[in-house]
Each structure stands twice: as C-alpha cells, then as structure tokens.
Write a protein that binds this DNA or RNA. Sequence first.
RNA 1: GGGUAGGUGGCAGAGCGGCGAUGCGCGGGACUGCAGAUCCCGUUUAUUGGGGUUCGAAUCCCCACCUACCCUCCA
Length: 449
Amino acid sequence: MQIFDTLSRDFKELKTVNGKRLNVFVCGPTVYDKPHLGHARTYIFFDIFIRYLRYKGLRPFYLMNITDIDDKIINRANSENVPYNEISRRYSTEFFKIMKALRNESVNYYAFATDFINEIISQIERLMEKGYAYETSDGVYYSVEKFQDYGKLSHQDITQLKAGARVETNENKKNPLDFALWKKRKPNEPYWNSPWGEGRPGWHIEDTAITERFFGYHYDLHGGGIDLVFPHHEAEIAQMEAISGKPPLVDYWVHTGHLSVENVKMSKSLGNFITVEEILKSYWPESVRLMFIGMNYRDTSNFIMDGLNGSQTIAEKLTWIYRRVADTEAQEKENYDAFMKEIKEPLEKNMNTPDSLVAINDFIKWASNELNKTEGKNGEIKAILDDLDSIFGIVRKAPIPEAIVNTILEIRKSARAKGDYATSDKIRSDLSKLGIKIEDRGNESFAWW
RNA sequence: GGGUAGGUGGCAGAGCGGCGAUGCGCGGGACUGCAGAUCCCGUUUAUUGGGGUUCGAAUCCCCACCUACCCUCCA
C-alpha cells in the first residue's frame, strides 16, 4: 500500500524490513488534562491504520508513549497543590478510559516516560561522549549545529529559523534552537538522579529512549499530529541518528492534520475545547469514528455538529442492519468479495478512508434492500459487517437483554391487535428513550439498538 | 519573514488529463393506525481568480488571491 511520508514529501510503498513485523511508534499525550476531539482524531486514525495492517496479515507492534513528566503536569500539580504523579496518574487513567470508549484498542504497549529514566540518561551520556550535547548551569542541551541534517524532516533551514522565530531566551544555550535533554532541578520540582545532578528529562529524549529500548536504532513507522513535526520529531531524528550514526531513524513519517471546531481553531484561551468525554455523552463512539473516516487524515479538518449528526445516522443504519443478521453465520461469498474489495482498495492509497466510506454506503444501501426482500444474503451481510467492524470499529454491538425486549414486544403486539395505540405508542417512546428503537412491519415488530 | 500542506455544491468529501462521485441536510412521493426504517424522484450552470499547455483540465505549468499548520508547549 501507499503511504505519504513527511520526510520525503511523497507517497511511498509501505514495505517491511522484517517480514510481517512492523514496528510502529505513535506519540501519545502529555497527561495533564482530559483528551479532546483533536486527540480523538489522531488516535482513531492510527487505530484504524493499525487495524487495517493487521487485517492485511501484517504484524505491527504498536507502541505509544505517555509523557508523565513535563512542565504542564508540574504546573497543574502546583496549582492544585498535589504531587505531580497524582496529576499524571489521574489523566493517564482518563486517557486509557477514553481510548477504550472510542474503541481504540490496537496499541500493544503504553510506555510511561518515567519508567525509562535509565535509558534516557544512557542516551544523553552517549550524546555527550560524541560531542552533540553540552552541560550548562540549568541543564544539558543538544547542539543542533553539530547535526548536519537538523531540519530535514520539516524542511527548515536553521539559519532561516533563527531569523524570524520567537526564540526562548536562555543565556546559557549556545544556539537558541538547542533543546533540553535534561533539566536540572528547581525548588519544588520532582527529580531523578543523574550524572548532571538531580533533575528530569527533556521532552524529546523520552521518545528515542523508549523506541531504542523496544526497536533499536531503526524502526518502520513513526506517527503523530502534524504539529509535532518541528521541533519534536526533528529532535528525535537528531538524537537517535547522532547516537547510532546509522540513519534513518524511521522509514515512514506519518502525520495527522489538525481539527478546528466550527471553523475556529481549538484552544484553551477561546474555551472551545471539546472533550471526548462530553461528545460521548450524546454520541456513539462508532459515530465519532465514522465522522473521522469521512475526513482525509492529512487535511486540516473542521468539526461541525451537523457532520457528527450525519455520522450518527450512518452508524444507526449499520446497527439496524447488524441487528437483523446478528444471529446469522457469516458467509464469505461473492457479494462479500465484491464489497470488501471496494472498501479495501481506497485504503491501499494512503488510507483514503472517505473513499472507503463511499463503498460502505453502497453496502448499506444494498444490504437494506436485500433485508427487505429475502434472508438469502444474510450470511454475506454478516461477514461484511464483521470485517467492517474489525477494520474500522464502526458496528455497534451493544449487549441488551433480548429476551426481555421480546417479551415487551409481545405485550405491545397484543395491544396493537386490540387497537390500543396509546399503550403501544407509549411502549415505543419509552423504549426509545432507553436507546431501543422499535419498527413495525405489518403486525410484526423489530427492535434494534 | 521562512517552511509545509491545501483551496470542489448548504455542509463533509472523492476524482488528480476525457460524461463533476458519495454521504449528510433539505423538498416531494410510496408504504404505515401513527412514527421510524426502507424504496423512488428532486435539490436548476459546485471545481478561488487570471493566463498557458492540450483535440480535451478540477486534474499539468505560470501568476495572483485566500486558508490551515509549523518556526514557543500543543494530537
């Protein structure tokens, strides 16, 4: 399949160097607040990407870091007057809860930065030995001028960066672009011991320490939000390739576009951050996923409520179909082959999920028609739904006590037979409030949820 | 100022040299006790602007304008 690589600015054929194994690292969150829709966008995309690779028969190892020590975490801890690790524990727990709620289940391992302090120190020591790092009164810094390729990922010219950028003022640094590998302890800050005294790791070094431990000097694919390209991923390249002397760090750099809300950039100051928690109070995770499937992952996209409402409609159609065939045995026959081909093909072209959605809609239309005519195609419909769910996670299979629902339907049926529509309508509307929809087809009724 | 990615109907969003998809929304009809779902029809000239290449351009080239992201933490 083809995938767009940020470094080469081109589509590249995805090849593995290790048979079916594919080592993948995606930048996880800094856990100092609740996840918002932008996080959902990025992590749902990578979840579907990995699910699809597995569906294809590859064996990706999906590694994600959790930044559990950082200025933001410390600030939040100070403002709440609690230890830093209470903040990181609270919001990492929240993050995992949200990931599960969104049906992002493909991560193999979450690596907490603070569990890799030894690896971090080891990397900094090696950078010092090789002359890429220097110590100052407040920390250890990476000297970007020592690394010839600095800027290659974001296609920046270091001298140009100096020219216009607002750069942090730090008298101790040789170059304003130099970034911290180790930050020496200030009063009331958490710390670990190191050859440079008590302190804590810089942000960029966490990720290379973790990936070196799991994957070594080189791995297949690195993902994250577009905003991380510079300086974060640039710094990762500088660190690991300087240490190893064996570029490249990774073969494919994959970045997701940002999400705005009702045409306004999401930001704390504007107060328009929409948390995933809030959205999931009113919408199914399947709907949220379908909404993002309808967007190209690389585009800067705009979230509008109408769009999510539309996705909810599609999610409900899929569920309606699923309920009708839930008890059927899956059959992978000709219609299954034809629809799955149409659905998979766009994914081969840089995960063009909007085009897959077209094929999914074709399937919905076909399946609805078939279900109105005959039961002959139910097995194939079931097989397609199973695959759709394993690739995209968009088929809702909520467990509801069917026996009870069926009993209620029987009661309602006799009410209708007597022409007692007041009762039958009340049952219908009450169940609807519980998320159970009833449809009448002649004398018989069908329930779904 | 520098870098990068883009500009297609009310909204979302494909197509990337040869009738401009698809979904949502909206309008109408069939069906229904009603509703929902489903089905059918419609939504009349939607490709930022201007040049160029070509028999033919949304698609390739040039110019302009506009947008987003990055150059500070950010998915």
